[in-house]
């Protein structure tokens, strides 16, 4: 079913919209959640929470790209759940590894922005600028790693690249991001 039709069903408050969303994107959403949480149960709960949240925000929101819209919701819900699960200590899965990898991009002395919302907007702008600057392959690898939470091996499998190529690409991209963040004054 076309995304636009599904969105129209949400606007018409037709509960079949959720079933259609699940049929078309359920597996994708579970895989995103699983990449972060490494738990079937928690991933399914995040998937279901995604449908609920989607139901609550459409309308009034009309997503330009339903797939990306759902992916973002699932990712944020998964990160929320991850934080809840590991409030006291670092847990398993890809998140602690991703944090460790990205630490090299961030200096100890933190952001210069004065409030959270401004800072988040600024980070979003910098990230989009950074992604725009990357070659397509490097950008896809970076997104699979840090948006979808895929492991290096999963990325290599997905795109048919060698593992060493994926690692090298990620390392170069992180270096580029670090330089850009400093240049933009994000991490002084």
């Amino acid at each position: 079913m076309e995304d636009q039709l599904i969105i129209d069903m949400y606007f018409a408050r037709d509960e079949q919209a959720i079933a259609c969303t699940r049929d078309k994107y359920g597996r994708l959403l579970r895989s995103i959640a699983y990449g972060i949480l490494k738990s079937h149960e928690d991933s399914e709960e995040c998937e279901n929470d995604t449908y609920l949240k989607t139901w609550n925000v459409i309308p009034p929101t009309r997503p330009a790209a339903l797939q990306a819209f759902l992916a973002k919701i699932t990712r944020n819900l998964s990160l929320d759940r991850y934080d809840q699960m590991h409030a006291a200590k670092r847990g398993a899965g890809e998140v602690p590894i991703m944090i460790e990898e990205l630490e090299e991009c961030i200096a100890d002395q933190g952001a210069t922005a004065t409030d959270d919302e401004t800072e988040d907007e600024e980070l979003k702008r910098i990230l989009n600028k950074f992604l725009e600057s990357l070659p397509q392959d490097a950008r896809k690898i970076f997104m699979r790693r840090y948006f979808f939470g895929d492991s290096v091996n999963e990325i290599a499998e997905r795109f048919g690249f060698g593992k060493s190529k994926v690692k090298m690409s990620l390392s170069r991209s992180r270096d580029s991001l670090s330089v850009l963040l400093k240049k933009e004054g994000y991490n002084g």
Binding site: Q67, A71, L79, M98, K124, L127, M143, R144
Partner: peptide, 15 residues
């Protein structure tokens, strides 16, 4: 990591 959720949709779809 959180801010990654707000990148342009086109990059998500591309990936």
């Amino acid at each position: 990591l959180r801010a990654m959720s707000d990148v342009d949709d086109k990059y998500i779809e591309e990936a």
